[in-house]
Computed example of a mutant assay.
Amino acid sequence: MRTPTRPRNDIRQYDDLAGEWWRPEGRFAMLAWIAAARGRLVPPASRPGAILVDLGCGGGLLAPHVAGKGYRHIGVDLVRSALELARDHGVSPVRADVTRLPLADALADVVSAGELLEHVTDLPATVSEVCRILRPGGTVVLDTLADTALCRFLAISVAERVPGGAPRGIHDPDLFVDPKWLVAEFARHGVALRTRGLRPQVRGLLRWLVTRRGGTPMVPTWSTAVLYQAVGTKEAS
């Protein structure tokens, strides 16, 4: 069945592509690789009953990479079909807008925002909510796309044209995120972010493009001009 044409960044695309979340060779394969890299940044829980809030959790791709670390894993998303999949992978689902979270202040020991920030239309409100629900001393981990010409070329002009690559129209390049702005905005809320670039391992990516089998390790890089990670800690009160 042909996928309907949607406007850029339309969340209905995730319902159209619901069967792709957990396919190793599917359209969301790179999201799974990035989730594995994000999971490595999540520290083990430091207390009983610790909570990890996974914003933009999608189909729950982070779940296997934080299982056993001691958290109750709460996933927040607007897409019902994705939340149903996340529930099947041990995530407690919450359907909500990330700019108005129905969660208490200082609830989370860890907040994850994976491949989310480049999709939101009110980035300051989203950052504010991330910091509001994060406990003092808690950790935020995120990854997103940079607001650069290079990123727009690779993520839109190239990735959306690779067979089996990113779905056409999944991103709106006008929403890509300047890493310097993001660091400054988190700092306003008492969270000091450290950023680093992230990219697929070249050999693994080429093997995957040819065979569509296995995963591709994501490796750190010095440049934050395309895809980047950030990790930070909220100031203790």
Rank of each mutant, 00 (worst) to 15 (best):
L123Q: 11
G138N: 04
V120H: 08
G75M: 05
T99S: 13
R87Q: 15
G56Q: 02
G138W: 00
G90E: 09
A86R: 06
G59W: 00
G138H: 02
G138Y: 01
L134C: 09
L52H: 04
T139N: 05
S128N: 13
V141E: 00
S112R: 01
L101P: 04
R132Y: 07
V98H: 03
G49K: 13
P136E: 06
A106P: 01
A108M: 11
K69E: 08
G49V: 13
V111S: 06
G114F: 02
G68W: 13
T144C: 12
V111I: 09
V91C: 06
L142T: 04
D97N: 13
G49D: 12
T144K: 03
V76I: 12
P102Y: 08
A63P: 10
A104E: 14
Y71P: 01
R80F: 08
G56Y: 00
L150V: 11
P64Q: 11
D97Y: 03
G49T: 12
I51R: 10
P102K: 12
G90W: 04
V98S: 02
I74Y: 06
V79F: 02
P44N: 09
A96C: 05
R47H: 13
A96L: 03
D97A: 06
L103Q: 07
A82I: 08
I133G: 02
P64I: 09
A146N: 14
G58T: 00
L142N: 04
D147R: 15
E115N: 11
T126L: 06
V127H: 10
Y71F: 15
H73G: 05
V53S: 06
A104C: 07
G58D: 01
P44L: 08
L62Q: 10
V79H: 01
A108R: 10
V53T: 05
R100K: 14
L55H: 02
G114T: 07
H65C: 08
V120Q: 10
L52P: 02
L55I: 05
L78D: 00
R100W: 06
T121Q: 14
L134V: 12
E84T: 15
C131M: 08
V66T: 11
L123A: 15
G70D: 07
R87G: 11
I74M: 12
P102S: 10
R100I: 01
A36P: 00
T121S: 15
R40C: 06
P48D: 14
A96V: 05
G75F: 02
A50L: 09
L52N: 03
A36V: 06
T126I: 09
G70S: 07
A106E: 15
P44D: 10
V110H: 02
L150C: 09
G137K: 09
R80K: 11
G39D: 10
P48E: 15
D147N: 15
